[in-house]
Amino acid sequence: MNIFRLGGDMLHVVSIFLLLLKIQTSHSCAGLSLKTQILYMVVFSTRYLDLFFTKPWHSALTFYNTIMKILFLSSSAYTIYLMQKRYKHTYDKVHDTFRIQYLIAAAAVLALIFHLRLTVFEILWAFSVFLESVAILPQLFLLQETGEVENITSHYIFCLGGYRTLYIFNWVWRYFTEHRRNQWLAWGCGTVQTLIYADFFYYYILSRKQGKKLRLP
């Protein structure tokens, strides 16, 4: 565990907290993409299958990971519940039209081709890594559709982007301190994911400067 990894995880927690706070205080999930939340749920539930096979008290790190995994899974499920049940009437279904089935299919095909070992566990893990790298796209798509620039949804995306950036620093750190090699799958997808956020930041700043609506290319 290094400071970048811990900082990244904490930002991830903050982003989830922000999201839930926004929904609870405004009694609305306007501007939020249910499709992105569903994708994260799929990502977490395919990646964290090891929860069933790992003893949480095996080590301090395992314990920490277990707590975080349960937190991510439960908060993700709760967010979907809020959006689909309690605040369903505020959900912007008309604009949240990104076709996630294509993302899921593409991630599945890539995972079947690129994985570290030919086991169900490893293929699902690779699938979750591929899918996570593009899971934010429906949210960016929705933001673009509604043209909202100044709301808490952008803070949520900023936190997620910051979390991904810190994870890259964490990988650089681990590369030199632990001599980790052959992590191409996680590193490659993680970098793609961070670039998507960086691209969003770029257009966000641009639209703020010009005082216009957000326009992603």
Partner: peptide, 10 residues
């Protein structure tokens, strides 16, 4: 360490 993926990360 595991099979090569960073399984100790989230």
């Amino acid at each position: 360490a595991s099979s090569g993926g960073i399984k100790d990360e989230l």
